[in-house]
C-alpha cells in the first residue's frame, strides 16, 4: 500500500473501537496504542514524519498482523496494510 493510500485508508476510521475487543495485544496490555484504532492514529503520525516517537514505534512494531480487527471493522478498513505501510515509513524511510 502506498503512503498516500494508507493515509486515506486510516482516515476512514470512525474510532468506534469494535476492533479492540478482538485485538490480542490490546487485551494483553490495555493501552490504546496497542489496539487497532490507536495504531491507525499512530500510522497517520508515522506517515506524517513522526517516525521517531517512542509510542509510534512501539505501537506499530507490536501489531501481530493477525487480521482479527479487519473482520469486525464496520468500515472494512485494511488495517494491517495501513500498519505495514507505516512500518515501512519507519524502518525504511519510505
Amino acid at each position: 500500500m502506498r503512503p498516500e493510500e494508507a493515509r486515506a485508508e486510516a482516515g476512514r476510521c470512525a474510532r468506534c473501537g469494535f476492533c479492540e475487543a478482538v485485538c490480542p495485544t490490546y487485551n494483553a496490555v490495555r493501552a490504546r496504542h496497542y489496539g487497532p484504532r490507536g495504531r491507525l492514529a499512530m500510522a497517520l503520525m508515522a506517515l506524517d514524519g513522526m517516525a521517531h516517537d517512542r509510542y509510534v514505534v512501539e505501537s506499530l512494531a507490536t501489531c501481530l498482523r493477525c487480521r482479527a480487527c479487519e473482520l469486525v471493522c464496520p468500515a472494512s478498513i485494511r488495517i494491517v496494510d495501513v500498519i505495514a505501510a507505516a512500518r515501512s515509513a519507519i524502518y525504511e524511510g519510505a
Binding site: 478482538v22 490480542p24 495485544t25 487485551n27 494483553a28 512494531a61 507490536t62 501489531c63 501481530l64 498482523r65 493477525c66 482479527a68 473482520l71 469486525v72
Partner: peptide
C-alpha cells in the same frame, strides 16, 4: 475473528 493470535509474531 475471535480465534486469537498466539503472540508469536512479536
Amino acid at each position: 475473528a475471535y480465534s486469537g493470535c498466539c503472540g508469536g509474531p512479536i
